[in-house]
């Protein structure tokens, strides 16, 4: 197997050592490992984010293949297991923990307490609101980066990152809703996941 040092050296040297160190020491949780969460996890792993908690209760099925980071050979597996396999191919030396759990108002605080940045990557609007309200009400420091509005094939230029509330960043177009009969496709989901991952990296590096 490729050595850790070799992978560390392969990191783009145009980014400073200090920056790499910040990423390596960072702790980020991803709530939901569907279209947003699986692609966020991949982007963060490629960027060298050292410690991640990845949470989902679901299994990979065929309807996921149009936008999620999984493959045919992973059908039927818990997404937590499938994402570990995907990330192991990118960097086997990251500290990645998984939890096969349905996030609720009751368990969210305990689950995410060691992670100062949480990506909200659920698909249902009420679940998004539940997690965000719970973390903003019951924690004092946790910052949330949420995906909100990425269905359909509208312009990707409508997808933005907005610092919405004190500790909440929203990525998406804030409008297109799957419940209005619009489906999800890889490009806009991946653009939104990219916005979320980039905002996480900015926060790790001390940018706004």
């Amino acid at each position: 197997m490729i050595a850790k040092e070799e992978l560390d050296r392969a990191f783009d040297s145009r980014f400073s050592k200090e920056m790499q160190e910040k990423l390596r020491n960072a702790r980020v949780a991803v709530a939901g490992l569907g279209g947003l969460g699986s692609n966020i996890a991949v982007a963060l792993a490629r960027s060298g984010v050292g410690h991640m908690l990845l949470v989902d209760f679901d299994r990979v099925d065929t309807t996921n293949l149009n936008r999620q980071a999984y493959g045919i050979s992973q059908l039927g597996k818990p997404k937590t297991q499938a994402i570990l396999e995907v990330l192991a191919e990118i960097n086997p030396y990251l500290d990645i923990r998984c939890s096969l759990t349905k996030v609720t108002e009751k368990n969210a605080i305990e689950l995410f307490k060691e992670y100062p940045i949480v990506c909200e990557a659920f698909d249902k609007a009420d679940q998004k609101a539940m997690l965000i309200n719970t973390l903003l009400e019951k924690t004092s420091n946790t910052i949330i980066v949420s995906g909100n509005g990425m269905a359909g094939v509208g312009s990707c230029n409508d997808i933005k990152t907005v610092h919405k509330l004190g500790r909440l960043y929203i990525c998406g177009d804030e409008k297109t809703d799957i419940e209005e009969g619009v489906g999800l496709m890889a490009p806009r989901v991946m653009v939104t996941a990219g916005h979320q991952a980039n905002q996480v990296i900015r926060l790790i590096l001390g940018l706004e």
Binding site: G37, K124, K164
Partner: peptide
């Protein structure tokens, strides 16, 4: 006041 409204999809 800020009201943030969430939509489905992820």
């Amino acid at each position: 006041v800020e009201v943030v409204s969430f939509v489905g999809g992820g």
